[in-house]
Amino acid sequence: MTTTEPVTETAVSLSIDGATVEVPKGSSVLDACNAAGVDTPTLCYAENLTPVNACRVCVVEQEGSRTLIPSCSRQAEDGMEIKTDSERVRHSRKMVLEFLGSGVDLSQAPDLQQWSEVYGADPERYGPSAAKIEEEVRIQDELYIRDYDKCVLCYKCVEACGDDAQHTFAIAVAGRGFDARIRTEFDTSLPDSACVYCGNCVAVCPTNALQFKTEFDLRSAANWRPEEQSVTRTVCSYCGVGCNLELHVQDETIVKVTSPNDHSVTSGHLCIKGRFGWSYVHGE
């Protein structure tokens, strides 16, 4: 489904680490970095969500700008001179990763761990007294769990639940500062909330703070083996929209269903039936 009529594209030209790249007008600086072959860490960014530029791990240095700029949300402009590996950029990225690592459990966020290594982030140096997010795992149903110890407050789940995808608005950021948390109203349980269990929040979570219950159970049983899983793309059977599914299969059993972000029909988003209505395949 194409949502807008195609428009004639014009290009802008900018410099990324000294190399000139051309990208279509309207592209982000991040797009330009990608076009230049520069790998950029991202966390709160997702191609199927509006950038909130909250995590600041993708910051780059723009010639003439007092502060660093978030590459995910800043539009590329003609003549920009961008540095992605300056001392300032490296320092801010390191600190952001370190700040996160010092307060949040990143054990199931391999990308962030890898970037932390790249930038030499040392979360341990804040010592054992450094404040951490400490919350009980919320298991309130058989479809997914919420483990906010792992939450980096990237806003993605809120966006996916809200007007970027589902328009259900079951969750929002509540509180302020370090005490801000993703919450339903008054932390009411998910089954009692507006949640319609589309699982779109789980799909966009970058740290596994939100997990499908199947994955959580397999992990708890030390039987989650992503390296052995196959991923097959197919089409959901439950209605005529044509959402694409990615079936994650381990030991000939579906263990998780996602949807490709780059597919035009629903850009990675599903409903409860497409996301969870597969148990009958295995005769349940």
């Binding site: 089954p191 269990y197 059977s237 439950y238 409860i272 039936k273 209505g277 148990s279 009958y280």
Partner: peptide, 16 residues
């Protein structure tokens, strides 16, 4: 959260 005569959706443990 359900589908037709429930042959497929019936086994899903839907909280809603």
């Amino acid at each position: 959260d359900s589908y037709n005569t429930g042959v497929q959706s019936g086994s899903m443990q839907s909280p809603i």
